[in-house]
């Protein structure tokens, strides 16, 4: 049964230094408020998993929270680079991080396998790609029935997964609408999960086949209004594409970034 906690308390309880954390949301419903809370609480040595690190992991990396990042596409969509990710990889600022990169298909399958309680995911993937030569977590196996050579990757089993969703009801059941990414898989694959929501309602208003995550499968629910901004919450607010473009200049420069972090994360929000 999901416990209703403040975002501060949920992060304090479930995100430990050194943890493996997946903050998911495929462009949509990216849990920025939760990411900022992780930064404010000064969490360190995290292994951060996400298909698309996006601005949220750029910020966590720049703030020094990450030890390792597992991802499949590390750019600012439609804009260019993630400069904090690049600075860490290319120049070791604020410290060196380890990266492990996959393709989207492999990571999506790995989340699904984690949710299914399997140790590995199998896919027809990485054919002819050199990614297996730089990522020892990509192996090939032979199908025992047909003999076909298939790719195998370990399933994703985070210590904690964090997602954002439209709303929860008073039993902590959560509705996710629109582009649902791998959010359900991320929650089910993890030992613990935190779901931030725009609001708590009496009735989710879910149709029979809607993506609903039962409260009893979630560790904590926390209200975070506009918790996905500058990404978006379908039905609540749009993606701030202008901010995504502005981020390029903010993240490009260490000092400008640090100032931005002070103004918008350390000295903003985060009431306990």
């Amino acid at each position: 049964m999901a416990e209703f906690l403040s975002l501060h308390d949920a992060v304090a309880r479930y995100v430990e230094d050194g943890a493996t954390v997946a903050m998911e949301g495929f462009t949509h419903l990216i849990p920025f408020a939760a990411g900022h809370e992780v930064i404010r609480q000064g969490k360190r040595d995290l292994t951060l998993i996400r298909l698309t690190p996006d601005l949220v992991y750029d910020q966590l990396i720049g703030a020094g929270c990450a030890k390792k990042v597992i991802f499949s596409w590390g750019g600012n969509p439609g804009v260019g680079s993630l400069h904090r990710l690049r600075d860490a990889v290319e120049k070791g600022w604020p410290h060196q991080i380890e990266i492990l990169e996959h393709s989207h298909a492999a990571m999506a399958c790995a989340f699904e396998a984690g949710a299914a309680g399997l140790p590995l995911a199998v896919l027809r993937g990485y054919v002819g790609s050199e990614l297996p030569s730089v990522n020892d977590q990509i192996k090939f196996i032979e199908c025992p029935f047909t003999g076909e050579r298939l790719a195998a990757v370990p399933s994703v089993r985070p210590d904690v997964s964090i997602i954002h969703a439209q709303r929860a009801d008073r039993a902590g059941n959560v509705l996710v609408e629109g582009i649902v990414g791998v959010q359900k898989e991320a929650v089910l694959a993890a030992k613990h999960s935190i779901v931030t929501v725009e609001e708590i309602v009496d009735d989710l208003g879910a149709t029979p086949n809607a993506c609903v995550i039962p409260g009893w499968a979630i560790s904590a629910v926390a209200v975070a209004e506009k918790g996905a901004y500058p990404s978006y919450t379908h039905g609540y607010y749009d993606r701030d594409n202008r901010f995504y473009k502005e981020w390029d200049a903010i993240a490009r420069d260490r000092e400008v970034f640090t100032q931005w972090l002070d103004d918008n994360v350390y000295n903003a929000g985060g009431a306990a």
């Binding site: 698309t52 991802f71 499949s72 596409w73 590390g74 750019g75 680079s81 993630l82 990169e101 996959h102 393709s103 989207h104 298909a105 492999a106 896919l123 027809r124 993937g125 990485y126 054919v127 790609s129 990614l131």
Partner: peptide
């Protein structure tokens, strides 16, 4: 940025 969906 990396591979994204392209390899598959």
């Amino acid at each position: 940025p990396g591979g994204g969906g392209a390899p598959e």
